[in-house]
């Protein structure tokens, strides 16, 4: 890749920023809804989940990107999963050691990051075709977008739930909140 330094910087910034709004994994690509629905009962959980996913996303993206030329095409998906699973294990152990309360709250959803479709999707659609640095920035942006999105959902659910509308803390509340945020964003885009 021969890109001039200046252009390169701009490109990186764009790769980073696209995950936050334009291609937001939750609101636009509608990926990784499982944690978005399950752990958004409180803001702490959502932030914890967001950080964990972002960590895995950044590292798996960079590693997969660096291996993209030596991976046999036919078994690339299993290879991705091995890489992702390694990082998820790291996160799981780190969380159990340094934030045991959070680990307990998130429970099964931490190991389930392995099958999170945002991470798999970015590995397949982006990291396996782009350079290490761009993939790293892509992972950062996507992770941040994911964190912001589920924090939004969690904030609304937690506030309404604490106000006494119990249903917002139950699964239907997650679907309602997510649906209305998505609808609102689409409306904003349409009017622009």
């Amino acid at each position: 890749m021969v890109i001039k330094n200046n252009k390169n910087k701009e490109g990186l910034l764009r790769e980073f920023s696209k995950g936050i709004f334009r291609q937001n994994p939750i609101f636009v690509s509608v990926l990784g809804l499982c944690p978005a629905l399950a752990v958004t009962t409180s803001l702490e959980n959502a932030l914890g989940m967001g950080v964990a996913v972002s960590f895995v996303l950044v590292f798996s993206n960079s590693i997969i990107s660096s291996m993209r030329n030596i991976l046999p095409n036919k078994i690339r998906i299993p290879c991705f999963i091995v890489v992702i699973a390694s990082f998820v294990t790291i996160v799981e152990l780190l969380m159990a050691a340094f934030a045991p309360l959070l680990a307990k709250q998130l429970g099964i959803f931490v190991p389930l990051i392995v099958v999170n479709c945002i991470i798999m999707g970015r590995a397949e659609a982006f990291a396996s075709r782009n350079s290490v640095l761009t993939s790293l920035f892509d992972g950062l942006g996507m992770g941040l977008g994911f964190t912001l999105a589920i924090s939004c959902v969690a904030l609304i659910r937690q506030v309404l739930g604490r106000c006494g509308i119990l249903v917002m803390l139950l699964p239907p509340g997650a679907l309602l909140t997510l649906g209305f945020l998505m609808g609102g964003l689409n409306l904003m885009k349409k009017e622009k």
Binding site: G164, I165, L166
Partner: peptide
């Protein structure tokens, strides 16, 4: 259903 789940 909303009321039943919210204010059981």
């Amino acid at each position: 259903a909303f009321l039943l789940l919210s204010f059981p």
